[in-house]
Amino acid sequence: MKTKIIVPLVTAAAAALFTGCATDAHYVQTGDREQIVSLGQINIQDYANAANAAVKDLLASGALDRVANPPALVEVSKVINNTSQLVDQDLLTQKIGIALTQSGKAQIKLVDKLSKGYQQENEFMSDQKGTRLPDFTLSGKIIETVDRAGNTRRTTYSFQLALNDPKAGVQVWMSEKEIGKQGTRSSVGF
């Protein structure tokens, strides 16, 4: 008699449990509780954290405020990739560029061929050198270091960024954000 009641109950509980644990595809937000902590690679959250730290530091430094004609004109230069993976630097520099332009403290200089063509045409037609040279260039480097102890692996990514004054030949601002991840395998959650 007891078995008659227990079996359906256990079955129902098991079904409920499996339904709760199921991971059907769904939309997620960057930085939410379900983010994947990937051990051996830089993920979107790492880029967001690095960009957040860099923008916070750069705006607080006041380096962009020290130009003759604000807002400062910034040209995004190369971010050297010293990691074992392929890195699209726009994942970092675009986030920084967006935040800087939204702050009203900087404008990002266009460097694509089409824009350069328009600039040259404008200069030729108006017969004057109208192109403003950048006040600063933004450059950087991403470095990966790996430490192992048994099955445990710690990967640290160092995001180094610098704001350079090309006319003076000096770096007016530098920052470094280290993001470390440790474990035996990648996981879901913070």
Partner: peptide, 11 residues
């Protein structure tokens, strides 16, 4: 609300 990278979650 003004949203950009400065409003991103950090751990």
């Amino acid at each position: 609300q003004v949203e950009n990278i400065l409003s991103a979650s950090s751990t």
